[in-house]
Design a protein around this nucleic acid. Structure first.
Length: 106
DNA sequence: AGCGTGACGAACT
DNA sequence: TAGTTCGCCACGC
C-alpha cells in the first residue's frame, strides 16, 4: 500500500507535460518539503510506471538519474527521446528549456 | 523507538 | 572541474 506522501508524489508526476522534465527538488518544493531524497525514494517505488511518467523526473544537474522500470536507465532515455527530449552523453540537451516548473494552475 | 539507507541537492575542498 | 561531505526526511527492519 502507498503512503500519503507517496500518493502526493505520484500525483505531481502526472502533472508533468509530455516532452518536458522536472527535478526531484522541484517536486519537493511543490509538495512543500525539503526531503528531496524521500521524493526520490517515492518515485522509485511508483508501481504504476509507465502509466505515471516517472521517467520525466531527473536530477538537478541535468543527467538522467536512475530508473527502476524494465530496462533501467536505458529505457528511461529512450522514453524521453520518444517524447522529443534530446539526450546527449547521458545529459538532457538544453535542460533549462526542457525543465518544467510546477505552477499554481498549470 | 532507534538506525541505516536512498531514482537528491548544494556547499565545500 | 571533479570528488567528497553534510543535510534532508520517509521507510523498512
Amino acid at each position: 500500500m502507498a503512503t500519503e506522501f507517496q500518493r502526493r508524489v505520484w500525483e505531481a508526476l502526472k502533472r508533468i507535460p509530455k516532452g518536458r522534465v522536472t527535478t526531484y527538488g522541484e517536486i519537493a518544493r511543490y509538495l512543500g518539503t525539503k526531503a528531496v531524497r524521500a521524493v526520490g525514494t517515492a518515485v522509485g517505488k511508483n508501481p504504476y510506471a509507465p502509466q505515471v511518467p516517472c521517467h520525466r523526473v531527473v536530477p538537478a544537474d541535468g543527467r538522467l538519474g536512475r530508473y527502476s522500470g524494465d530496462g533501467g536507465i536505458k529505457t528511461k532515455r529512450r522514453l524521453l527521446e520518444s517524447e522529443g527530449v534530446e539526450v546527449a552523453d547521458g545529459k538532457i540537451v538544453d535542460f533549462p528549456r526542457r525543465f518544467w516548473r510546477f505552477e499554481k494552475k498549470e
